[in-house]
Design a protein around this nucleic acid. Structure first.
Lengths: 144, 144
DNA sequence: ACCAAAATTGCAACAAAGTTGCAATAAATG
DNA sequence: CATTTATTGCAACTTTGTTGCAATTTTGGT
C-alpha cells in the first residue's frame, strides 16, 4: 500500500504512535465518501483480525486528536468521518454540513460554500452558543 | 389531573386511541422544558407499571403522528420532545434549533426567531436538500 | 540491532439500549 | 354491552458499547 508512508507521516504529525490498526482504519476512512459506522468499518476490515474494542478505542483516539468526528445517524448509532485534509497533510476543521440521504441513509460531509454558509446564530435568552452543526436531509447523487 | 381532558381531546384530534399510557407519556413530555430520553421518561413514571417496550412503542406512535420528534444526544441515544402546540391544540412543526448544553448535556428545542432563521441552503452538486436540522452547542441558562 | 518503558491491542465478560413474538387486556364502534 | 381492533406487558433476544487485564507492539536511547 503506497499510501502507508503518507499515513505514517500524518499520524506522527498528530502525535500518535503508528500502528497497523491505525493505518488500516485511516485507510478505510480515507477511501469512503460517506461517514461509516463502527460496524461498517469492521466489515471492511475482515481478514485483518481487528477487534471491535480496539476499533472503538482507535476511533476514540482519532476523535480526541481531532482527526475524526462523529455524527449520529438516523437510526441511533454513530458514524465516523475524517475531517478534510489539505495538501500539507493538515487537518481542516472548518464548518461543514452533514447531508443525510433519506433514501440510502448515507451521511456525507459537505463543505459549506461561502454562498451557502450560515451565520452563527446569535446567543439568545440566556443560551450561549459556542458551536453548531448543520444537518441537511434529502436525496444524494447516487439515489436519483 | 385536570389536564387529562385536554390531552384526551388532543389525542383524538391526532387520530389516536386514548389510553392511560399515552396520557401519562404526554403529560411527562409536556412538563419538561428539555428533550427526554426513554430512560428519563421511564424514571419519571415509576409507580405506574409502564413497560419499557410499551414506552418505546408509544414514543414511536407519537413520532409517526408528528406529535413528537427525536434528537440524537451527544452520548448516542435518542431524546424525545413534543412539537410546540398552539392555543387550538394544533401541532406546530415549524423550524427550530436544538440547543445542546455542553455542561449539563440537556437538549432544548429553541424556536428560530425570524432574525436568526436560516435560509434553506441551495441544493448543490447533485444533493437535493429537502429539510434541515440545526444543532447549537453551548451553555444553557441553568448552567451559568 | 537490542532493551526498557509506555502505549496499544485482543479477549472475555459484562452492561445498556432497543427489538420481536405472543398472549392478555383495554378502547371504540355499532 | 358485545365484538372488533389496537394496545399493553412479559420473556427472550439482539445489537451496541464498555471494563479489566494480560499479552503484544511501538518508540527512543544505547
Amino acid at each position: 500500500m503506497i499510501r502507508n508512508e503518507q499515513y505514517h507521516q500524518f499520524l506522527r504529525q498528530c502525535g500518535l504512535k503508528v500502528t497497523s490498526t491505525r493505518l488500516l482504519v485511516l485507510d478505510v476512512l480515507m477511501s469512503s465518501s460517506t461517514a461509516l459506522s463502527h460496524g461498517d468499518i469492521l466489515g471492511k476490515t475482515r481478514g485483518s483480525r481487528l477487534d471491535k474494542v480496539t476499533l472503538y478505542r482507535t476511533l476514540d483516539t482519532f476523535i480526541r486528536h481531532g482527526i475524526v468526528h462523529k455524527v449520529a445517524s438516523e437510526d441511533r448509532n454513530w458514524l465516523y468521518a475524517l475531517h478534510p485534509i489539505d495538501r500539507n497533510n493538515s487537518v481542516v476543521r472548518g464548518d461543514h454540513a452533514h447531508f443525510i440521504c433519506d433514501h440510502c441513509e448515507r451521511i456525507y460531509c459537505l463543505p459549506l460554500q461561502t454562498r451557502n454558509s450560515m451565520p452563527a446564530p446569535e446567543s439568545e435568552e440566556g443560551f450561549i452558543v459556542r458551536a453548531h452543526e448543520f444537518r441537511l436531509h434529502g436525496i444524494c447523487p447516487q439515489c436519483h
